[in-house]
């Protein structure tokens, strides 16, 4: 990657925000590089949504320092709103507007002239593939189509930073793949993207790096290729027609637990080891009917994260 001279997409030091007694974001330090897709991963309640609200200039931090595209959301709210496209996990639409009117409405909200807003709205409708729905009321859209419309809305003003809060939740696999393509296309055009989710596999495929959050704090930043989980032993689920024959021939040290249906959960060092094991089982006459990986990369790293006691 070429040397970046521009601002990081997000920079924070000691950023905190509480709701009553709950510290949603707790002395958070993050450096999120620009022009990348950064996954924000953590369990529910880790503070992902709160962090994104602060970055979108909607929620004030209690303390700490934060810069979004180089601006302080507290003092330069207008500049932050101009630089950031925010797509919340839950958002409403105006029922009586058509998809095109909806985007034009937000174009006007970003000070586009009505001509510019109209052009931009049609452009975005085409980008997210909703051409057939531009003149139809928003409420006829499916969940996946609504998500795409929401994504288009976040892009109306050509933001430099996209904040996507759980964009893939509730989408079918096909819609997720489409969303992933759209997000990657924005990254390729130079937009920084922060995307939160607990649908880990989905983020692993689209992201360049990942920030793990737990209890309001950042507990790790990793390039996707260098995840701690990628060198780890992986778990597999193996099931055979005869459970006893299977158990007898599996290396005892590898068995983590036995499932109720007789399937064994085993931990193996690598895919090569897994391939050898299945070949050996078949050679020995065990009728293997199922062998599936239980967690890979990001997910394994996430599970590992949860096991680590927090300082």
């Amino acid at each position: 990657m070429q040397a970046e001279t521009q601002n990081p997409a997000v920079y924070s030091r000691g950023l905190s925000r509480s709701f009553g007694p709950v510290r949603a974001v707790d002395r958070l330090d993050v450096d999120i590089p620009a022009r990348e897709i950064v996954a924000l991963v953590g369990p529910n309640g880790a503070g992902k949504t709160t962090l994104l609200l602060i970055l979108a200039g909607l929620l004030a931090a209690d303390s700490g320092e934060v810069r979004v595209a180089g601006f302080d959301p507290m003092t330069s709210t207008y500049d932050v709103h101009r630089s950031v496209g925010w797509m919340p996990d839950f958002f409403g639409v105006y029922e009586s507007l058509t998809s095109l009117e909806y985007l034009e409405f937000f174009g006007a909200a970003y000070r586009l002239s009505s001509d510019e807003a109209g052009t931009r709205a049609r452009e975005l409708i085409a980008l997210v593939g909703l051409e057939g729905f531009s003149e139809r009321p928003v409420h006829v859209l499916s969940r996946g189509q609504k998500q795409r419309l929401g994504f288009a809305r976040a892009l109306v003003h050509r933001p430099r930073l996209l904040l996507l809060d759980e964009p893939a939740s509730g989408l079918d696999p096909r819609a997720r793949i489409e969303l992933r393509k759209l997000v990657q296309q924005q990254r390729d055009e130079g937009v920084s993207v922060i995307v939160s989710s607990h649908i880990l596999a989905e983020l692993e495929e689209m992201s360049d790096s990942v920030v793990f959050m737990e209890a309001g704090r950042s507990v790790g930043y990793h390039r996707i290729g260098e995840l701690p989980g990628s060198g780890r032993a992986l778990r597999w689920r193996i099931r055979a027609l005869n459970a006893e024959a299977l158990a007898a021939r599996l290396p005892a040290a590898a068995i983590v637990e036995t499932a109720r249906d007789g399937a064994a959960i085993v931990e193996l060092e690598s895919e090569a080891v897994a391939a050898e094991l299945v070949a050996a089982l078949v050679r020995d006459g065990v009728s293997v009917v199922e062998m599936v990986p239980l967690g890979r990369g990001l997910e394994a790293a996430f599970m590992g994260l949860s096991e680590v006691p927090l300082a």
Binding site: L58, H81, R82, P88, F91, G92
Partner: peptide, 15 residues
């Protein structure tokens, strides 16, 4: 608008 989840979208714009 708060209930429907449209207010925050408006607030995040330049309005």
């Amino acid at each position: 608008e708060r209930e429907r989840g449209t207010l925050a979208l408006l607030q995040s714009t330049l309005y």
